[in-house]
Amino acid sequence: MSQSEPSDTSEHPRAHHDMGGVPKFLCEPIDTEAHALTPFDREVDAIRGILGAKSVMSVDELRRGIEAIPEADYARLSYYQRWIRSIADNLLARGVISEAELRAALEQA
């Protein structure tokens, strides 16, 4: 059994999504109001569900992709904006779509 004290967590590189007890958010009031989802939010959510059900992308891969978003963008983007970025990242990483295809689709969209 180790008797050593746990290391001071402030010395370690906490990932920015790992928010439990983090001082910078402790004074942030909680917005307890209901916020209706937008059509964008619901579509992104549905696409994630389909990709999961068809084993194209797991929820763990979705999370990995969200966590890979740089901190400033993570803070700026809405919840489902992070999701669609992670979905695109994962579809590229898995080779489901290619960069050339995505570039062309973005021009068409």
Binding site: S78, Q81, R85, A88, L92, L102, R103, L106, Q108
Partner: peptide, 19 residues
């Protein structure tokens, strides 16, 4: 990470839906 995924979110969704 490709800058393509940093496209505006609505456009990214539209592109992903097409593909």
């Amino acid at each position: 990470m490709t800058p393509l995924i940093e496209a505006p979110s609505e456009r990214l969704l539209a592109g992903i839906k097409l593909l």
